[in-house]
Amino acid sequence: MDTFSLPGGLGPLFFALACAITLLAGFVKGTTGFAMPMIMVSGLASFLSPEMALAGLMLPTLVTNAMQALRDGLRAAIGAVRDYPRYFAVAGVCLVLSGQLVTAVDPRAIYAMIGVPITFFGVAQLLGWQVSIRPEAQRRAEALLGTVSGVIGGVSGVWGPPLVIYLTAIGTPKAEQVRVQGVAFALGAVLLVATHLQTGVLNARTIPFSALLLAPALAGMWLGQRVQDRLDQATFRKATLFVLVLAGLNLLRRAFT
């Protein structure tokens, strides 16, 4: 299905579909601050190889995350790293290490292990079960969820849900949550691009394909941010949890199909 003249070997119909998926992913990311890799990799992998789908999301993810991280300025972005140092350090190391295994390991077991708790957490929160992380437990939670983010991110390109769980559980305000997610995902995207330039997932065939998906990604991001600016904290939290549940269900779908 993925053979012809456009970058990435796609025909016009499938390339238009790839752009539509990317536009939707950008809109959801602009609204909630995450989920672009989840939407892109699951949508693109329905008609592309897993490696091509992973490569396609690389540049859109990198650019949109950088925009999100720097929306409040460089100083605020640097402050986000200082506020969550364990998460950034642990997730970065685990992402690079697990990225070396992307072509050798069946990721379905990892999808199942992370998909179950993510789905459970999101559904429970939407039904009114309030989960919070006590201040004395935040260091351990940061390290644990940083490990999970890095491992699954290196294998699948989806590393956002564990961080979203953590930020939601400690009651992070909307603006700070979106900024921290942007910084974390931008740094992760840089590491992911560097890792897969080395593994060969990003190459002369896949880089142009990923670059062409930048335009719909940016358009969707712009539209989503207009929506986000109109959401209050409670509505933003519900929207985030809803997308988190979809992320968990998607991981489970990928684990068992």
Results as ranks from 00 to 15, higher is better:
212 L>P: 05
98 S>W: 11
53 A>G: 14
45 A>H: 05
214 L>D: 07
243 V>A: 08
255 A>L: 09
194 A>P: 05
4 F>K: 12
154 G>N: 01
147 T>P: 00
74 L>V: 15
96 V>E: 00
212 L>N: 04
194 A>L: 15
150 G>R: 04
248 G>V: 10
132 S>H: 13
132 S>G: 11
37 P>R: 09
12 P>T: 13
160 G>I: 04
212 L>T: 14
142 E>L: 00
50 P>Y: 14
61 T>K: 02
19 C>T: 14
23 L>S: 02
34 F>T: 04
137 A>W: 15
156 S>M: 09
189 A>V: 05
26 G>F: 11
217 A>H: 09
131 V>G: 01
159 W>P: 02
145 L>V: 04
233 Q>H: 10
163 L>V: 05
140 R>L: 12
250 N>I: 09
93 V>E: 01
28 V>L: 12
233 Q>E: 12
111 Y>V: 04
142 E>N: 06
105 V>E: 10
188 G>V: 10
150 G>Q: 05
179 R>H: 03
43 G>Q: 04
235 T>D: 04
3 T>H: 14
164 V>K: 07
168 T>L: 15
221 M>K: 08
2 D>I: 13
56 G>M: 06
246 L>H: 07
2 D>Y: 07
207 I>N: 08
131 V>Y: 15
142 E>S: 12
127 L>W: 11
34 F>H: 02
74 L>R: 13
13 L>A: 15
144 L>R: 03
67 M>Y: 15
123 V>Y: 10
159 W>L: 08
63 V>D: 04
180 V>W: 00
87 Y>V: 04
160 G>W: 00
175 A>M: 09
14 F>P: 01
229 D>K: 15
193 V>H: 04
82 R>C: 06
208 P>L: 00
10 L>D: 02
125 Q>T: 02
154 G>T: 05
241 L>H: 00
62 L>I: 06
16 A>G: 07
160 G>R: 06
217 A>C: 09
10 L>R: 01
65 N>C: 00
99 G>I: 04
108 R>A: 14
14 F>N: 07
231 L>A: 10
74 L>C: 05
241 L>P: 05
74 L>K: 14
153 G>W: 02
8 G>Q: 03
217 A>N: 13
182 G>N: 03
90 V>N: 03
150 G>C: 07
97 L>F: 09
72 D>C: 04
58 M>H: 10
220 G>N: 08
54 L>K: 14
1 M>H: 14
67 M>C: 14
96 V>N: 02
144 L>C: 10
200 G>N: 11
257 T>A: 11
61 T>M: 08
135 P>H: 03
254 R>I: 02
229 D>N: 12
188 G>S: 01
39 I>A: 08
213 L>G: 09
101 L>C: 13
155 V>A: 15
157 G>N: 10
20 A>C: 13
178 V>K: 14
10 L>C: 00
188 G>D: 07
83 D>L: 07
164 V>L: 12
110 I>F: 15
183 V>R: 03
256 F>T: 06
91 A>F: 12
26 G>E: 13
230 R>A: 13
15 F>T: 06
243 V>D: 01
73 G>M: 12
70 L>N: 10
224 G>L: 10
223 L>I: 07
211 A>F: 12
144 L>S: 13
236 F>S: 02
206 T>L: 09
230 R>E: 08
6 L>T: 11
41 V>K: 10
185 F>G: 05
